[in-house]
């Protein structure tokens, strides 16, 4: 077990090193000078040079890479080129929107997908199954930003139940804040719920055709009892894997939804920073997301080993 753990740990470390190198180099080759972007078309050459010096853009590539990684290791993410505030602070603020939004969307998607998937699997081939499959097919196909605009049109402009976007801040109260995240969360959750419901259904159907279910039925359990007592637990493994993947996607992938609802989240920060060539922000946010994904994978690997003893002995 210890050996397996150490091997995973080394692989985690290597992944992080490689990722930091790739991120840094990829952004290094992106054309565009942050100083020129900030000072615009009337800037004089000496002003540009002064700003570049101030931003620390003049050092060699290696020196800047070493400075960045060294900073990350000590928790110093550097200072944003454009906003001139510490990157760690900015990420912290944005996470307070992106993280709750991702959790909200994930909760919604799970709450929709589980019953739908189980219901469809338990009544395979019935009208219920066909309609769940049809609706989820639609859910996968509809782009979430389009669905988001549709909801804004109906609930914000016509019915006036919600505001069209924006985030009032957590200090206005939990429910006010959550209300402003509701439309974005629904827009994000819909495609995720559709995918999850389909995975849930097919995984459950696979499990239901396994030998141990037949044995359970032979012992006298009804179809329903066999499903709830034996099949569901075993069918959950692929579902949980998908949920893990979806969480990282929701955290990083809400860029378009955050633009539609003008939410000041992590996705919008990356979007703005890329066009302003605020490379230090982009690097740090992407690195943070990579770190989150790698750590989640590591935790999943560990969990597999706990659940499945066969993995521990594997060379």
């Amino acid at each position: 077990m210890l050996r397996y753990f150490l091997k995973r740990l080394v692989s985690l470390g290597l992944s992080l090193v490689v990722a930091s190198g790739v991120i840094f180099l990829a952004l290094e080759v992106v054309p565009g000078d942050p100083a020129a972007y900030m000072l615009g078309i009337n800037a004089q050459e000496d002003t540009l040079a002064a700003l570049r010096e101030e931003l620390g853009l003049n050092g060699s590539v290696w020196a800047r890479y070493a400075g960045w990684v060294g900073g990350l290791l000590t928790g110093d993410f550097g200072v944003s080129y454009t906003y001139r505030t510490p990157v760690a602070e900015m990420i912290g603020e944005r996470l307070w929107i992106s993280l709750p939004l991702a959790l909200y969307a994930l909760t919604l998607s799970t709450a929709i997908a589980f019953p739908a998937g189980i219901w469809a699997a338990s009544k395979r081939g019935s009208a219920v199954d066909v309609s769940v499959m049809g609706v989820t097919q639609l859910g996968v196909a509809i782009p979430n930003f389009w669905f988001a605009m549709l909801m804004v049109l109906v609930f914000a402009i016509n019915l006036r139940w919600f505001s069209a976007g924006g985030f009032p801040g957590w200090d206005t109260g939990f429910f006010v804040a959550m209300k402003s995240l509701t439309l974005p969360a629904v827009a994000l959750a819909l495609p995720q719920a559709s995918i999850l419901a389909r995975v849930m259904r097919s995984s459950l159907l696979d499990t239901l055709s396994e030998d141990f279910i037949r044995t359970a039925r032979a012992k006298g359990l009804s179809q329903r009892q066999a499903l709830w007592r034996h099949a569901l637990r075993n069918a959950l493994i692929p579902v949980l894997t998908i949920i893990g993947l979806q969480f990282s996607f929701l955290l990083a992938g809400a860029i378009i939804i955050e633009n539609v609802f003008f939410l000041p989240g992590l996705g919008r920060l990356v979007f703005q920073s890329i066009s302003a060539r605020d490379l230090i922000v982009v690097e740090s946010v992407v690195m943070l997301l990579v770190f989150a994904v790698i750590v989640v994978n590591f935790a999943v690997d560990m969990a597999y080993a706990v659940v499945d003893p066969r993995l521990r002995g594997r060379r």
Partner: peptide, 8 residues
């Protein structure tokens, strides 16, 4: 989003 914000 700008259109929606003004309309709402």
């Amino acid at each position: 989003a700008a259109f929606a914000a003004v309309m709402a």
